[in-house]
Write a protein that binds this DNA or RNA. Structure first.
Length: 825
RNA sequence: GCGGCAGUGGCGGAAUUGGCAGACGCGCUAGAUUCAGGAUCUAGUGGGAGCAAUCUCGUGGAGGUUCAAGUCCUCUCUGCCGCACCA
């Protein structure tokens, strides 16, 4: 009897071995193909959760597999270390955010290391360290230099609980992404990155990402929200004003029966001034101001509006139409003003019906009424233009082009594209972030901090207000400075940057994490970038992944990077659930990875999490499933240790011609498993089926054990391959067993096994015989049988003859190597 | 409302190109071992009928295409995710 499977000492032993021998340390090596495997770095909350375990287990299988396949694998880890929780801890418990964050990093690093992931820890980064955020500030300066960072007074999303503004992307259903507090609108002067300049490229280049899930690409596409149409101006009747409108349906411009301005539109006040409607309009504008964003944008709520008393002229036909203001027109989109065509737009239709505004049909579908009174809903389908003067008879598509052409020729308007994507608001009124490197001087105005003065250091000695207000605003020695241009006393920007700025370029930093002069060197990014495989949660589909793409494109444009897309392949892992719900403290269904690793070991935890579900799908946590994984490793341990001494001396035979049936079978199963596991990892990331193939090989070995006559060479081959195939999933136990069976070099340094096609050639194969599509018999035929021979053998089969007796055989279909279908009548 | 994904035993899931549905694991049942429990080992395990050989039904539902459908087509139900007055 051998030793029992003592995962604790085995895991500690090999983690130490890997670390001491720097097995996972990499450098650029032009002789070898590179592979950059990256998992989204965590926020150091202080506790590893199952989502992390899943994420990093997936990444580690890929990294270890690719390494054994001969790639030079970069597999780094770091910390997305700026952010609000650190500051909240400071307010609540009086711990400095830096200390809180560093303690958490220490704790989580230990937890991560106990998982045995193949990280090159020498490349570890933390975004809150001055040597990192120095370059986040550098990024800001470069964007500023290239007119892609600007400060503007705008209506912004304000979270009263977090005491800071939020980017559009961080507002979910009108509430703060972090704390779910209802977001307020505020007028503030804030810094933005001009991501909208890249809208078209961000959209177009999605095409260049075949390795991304369709779902993520669709989400980004919708978020960018490109729409094509035209912008034109309408004169205000009797005033020297024009109103620009954007429409995607210029073909319906003859059907305009009114127009609508957003209540916040700057012209509203002007055009109703002195009119009898003025008071009513003001009331309405005020009322809208106090409706929350959620209610305002809810589709359920009936549209409301008021007439301004003013009229506009339709430039195409000279018609005078009333100008309304209504809550369904948003100032943020397009020009904040629309032409209303109730006959062909459902929202306009609803509004027109409510306020008895005229409806005029200008597109005639095949079976649609011509009389607007018969219209029960807006007609938005295809058709021919009517009531549209010289444009009558054109289709919708032809009409759009013709009208735009006419407008351009007559200087009424022009073709235009609108995006839903807004510029990225990056200012945060918080302390624990990278300070925006800007100085305000009375004479020189806005002055960027010179590169050589970076980093603008966060002062450490600060006091946190219970209100959550940023202490930076009150620290004189921070904000009081001198102008870099004229030397006069000046004031520093006290806002910090959104943490998404830090995470938009960290994957570049991993390539040369210790460089002091540059965020990264081109030599290293030219070798490593782009990331070959990126793995993380779907919740970053828009935010992080779009910002990172934007940064990469910008860095490409300023010649810092040679790639335009940062992540070639993206794997979005599903959530880890318990009792059908996401694990959360409030639900009390959290399973702690630390506990699981303590009880069963990292190999078991990894095996279970990879086996339970394919990576993209949600995974239901099961204690019994974990035990099943643990049992499997124990069985592997027992079997291999039992054989260990016996197979040490055995030689894997070069040829396998002379084997008996059972041995041949084991040899076949070994090579079948190599083939299956390789393709499951490489082509499909289906780790669950790869593991089941390994289990099948184990089961074959286990039943072979009872053979009276054993070929130890074939057993050795099977065991060696079993360990090699299992090693990316459960590296510790495989290292130990690899050593016990007489190998003295780490299994990680072994080449990935290759299957021998000859071993997969079988003498006999089983063929299913169907009668009229139902399986009635299985027959064994020589593997090299022709279709005709298979056909004959099945027809001669006693059972088949019996079942077809007295029936007419209509047709026989032979599927090579698989089945025969005899169709009878 | 629009877009996407999914629905297969008691459970997690497999079936990669239209070709034997349920691999692998969990659970369960019986047996062996054990003072007992646990662990381990052996056998069985989709439903229904039958002593049995076997028959029959079966991939959310209803149709269809095909020699053959979990897989393709049409309609439909349910769940999840994203967007949501975007002009």
């Amino acid at each position: 009897m051998g030793k029992k499977y003592d995962f604790k000492s085995i895991e500690a032993k090999w983690q130490k071995y890997w670390e001491e021998n720097k097995l996972f340390k990499v450098d650029e090596n032009p002789q070898k193909p590179k592979y950059y495997c990256l998992e989204m770095f965590p926020y150091p909350s202080g506790n590893l959760h199952m989502g992390h375990v899943r994420n990093y287990a997936i990444g580690d299988v890929i990294a270890r597999f690719k390494h054994m396949k001969g790639f030079n694998v970069l597999h780094p880890m770091g910390w997305d270390a700026f952010g609000l929780p650190a500051e909240n801890a400071a307010i609540k418990h009086g711990i400095h955010p830096a200390k809180w964050t560093n303690d958490n990093i220490e704790k989580m690093r230990t937890q991560l290391k106990s998982m045995g992931i193949s990280y090159d820890w020498d490349r570890e980064i933390a975004t809150c360290k001055p040597d990192y955020y120095k370059f986040t500030q550098w990024m800001f300066l470069k964007l500023y230099e290239n007119n892609l960072a600007y400060k503007e007074k705008a209506t912004v999303n304000w979270c009263p609980s977090c005491q800071t503004v939020l980017a559009n992307e961080q507002v979910i259903n009108g509430a703060c992404e972090r704390c779910e507090t209802t977001v307020e609108k505020k007028q503030l002067e804030q810094w933005f990155f001009k991501i909208t300049n890249y809208a078209q490229r961000l959209l177009d280049d999605l095409e260049k990402l075949p390795g991304w899930p369709e779902k993520v690409k669709i989400m980004q596409k919708n978020w960018i929200g490109r729409s094509e149409g035209c912008e034109f101006s309408m004169h205000v009747d009797g005033a020297d004003e024009t109103i620009n409108v954007f429409t995607t349906r210029p073909d319906t411009v003859f059907g305009v029966t009114y127009m609508v301005l957003a209540p916040e539109h700057p012209l509203v006040e002007k055009i109703c001034r002195g009119k009898p409607q003025e008071a009513q309009v003001k009331d309405f504008v005020n009322k809208v101001k106090y409706i929350s964003e959620i209610d305002r944008t809810s589709a359920e709520i009936e549209k409301e509006g008021v007439f301004t008393g003013a009229h506009a002229i339709n430039p195409m036909n000279g018609e005078k139409v009333p100008i309304w203001i209504a809550d369904y027109v948003l100032m943020e989109y397009g020009t904040g003003a629309i032409m209303a065509v109730p006959a062909h737009d459902q929202r306009d239709f609803d509004f027109a019906k409510k306020y008895n505004l005229p409806i005029k049909i200008v597109i005639q579908g095949e079976n649609t009424p011509l009389d607007a009174d018969n219209l029960t809903e807006a007609y938005t389908g295809d058709g021919k233009m009517v009531n549209s003067g010289e444009f009558n008879g054109l289709t919708v598509e032809e009409g759009k082009k013709a009208i735009i052409k006419y407008m351009e020729k007559n200087r009424i308007g022009k073709g235009a594209v609108n995006y839903r994507l807004r510029d990225w608001l990056i200012s945060r009124q918080r302390y624990w972030g990278a300070p925006i490197p800007i100085i305000y001087c009375e004479d020189c105005k806005t002055v960027p901090v010179p590169e050589e003065d970076l980093p603008v250091l966060l002062p450490e000695d600060v006091e946190f207000k219970p209100s959550g207000e940023s202490p930076l605003k009150y620290i004189e020695k921070f904000y009081k400075t001198s102008c870099p241009i004229c030397g006069k006393e000046a004031r520093r920007e006290t806002d910090t940057m959104d943490t998404f700025v830090c995470s938009s370029w960290y994957f570049d930093r991993y390539c040369s994490p210790h460089n002091d002069d540059m965020p990264f060197t081109k030599e290293t990014t030219d070798y490593w970038m782009p990331v070959d495989q990126y793995i993380g949660g779907i919740e970053h589909a828009i935010l992080h992944l779009m910002y990172a793409r934007f940064f990469t494109k910008f860095l490409y444009d300023i010649d810092m990077l040679s790639c335009e897309e940062p992540f070639t392949n993206l794997l979005t892992q599903g959530m880890v659930l318990k009792d059908g719900a996401k694990m959360s403290k409030s639900k009390g269904n959290v399973v702690s990875p630390e506990e699981i690793i303590k009880t069963y070991g990292a190999d078991t935890a990894r095996l279970f999490i990879l086996f339970a579900s394919p990576p993209e799908r949600d995974l239901e946590w099961s204690e019994q499933g974990v035990e099943g994984a643990y049992r499997f490793l124990n069985r592997v341990w027992r079997l291999v240790t039992e054989y260990a001494e016996k197979i040490k001396a055995a030689k894997v035979p070069p040829g396998f011609e002379e084997l008996n049936q059972a041995t041949k079978e084991l040899h076949f199963k070994t090579h079948f498993a190599i083939k299956k596991v390789t393709s499951d990892i490489e082509e499909r990331f289906n780790f669950n089926t790869a593991i089941s193939a390994i289990m099948e090989l184990f089961n074959a070995l286990n039943s072979y054990k009872d053979q009276s006559e054993q070929d130890l060479g074939v057993v050795k081959e099977a065991i060696n391959n079993l360990l090699l195939l299992l090693s990316p999933f459960c590296p510790h136990i495989c290292e130990e067993l690899w050593q016990i069976t007489g190998n003295n070099k780490s299994i990680y340094l072994q080449p990935w096994p290759r299957y021998n096609p000859e071993a997969l050639v079988q003498d006999e194969i089983e063929i299913a015989v169907q009668i009229s599509g139902k399986v009635k018999e299985r027959i064994k035929v020589p593997a090299n049988s022709s279709d005709e021979q298979i056909r004959q053998i099945s027809l001669q089969n006693v059972k088949i003859q019996d079942l077809t007796k007295g029936k007419k055989i209509v047709k026989i279909i032979v599927v090579p190597q698989k089945l025969v279908n005899i169709v009878v009548k």
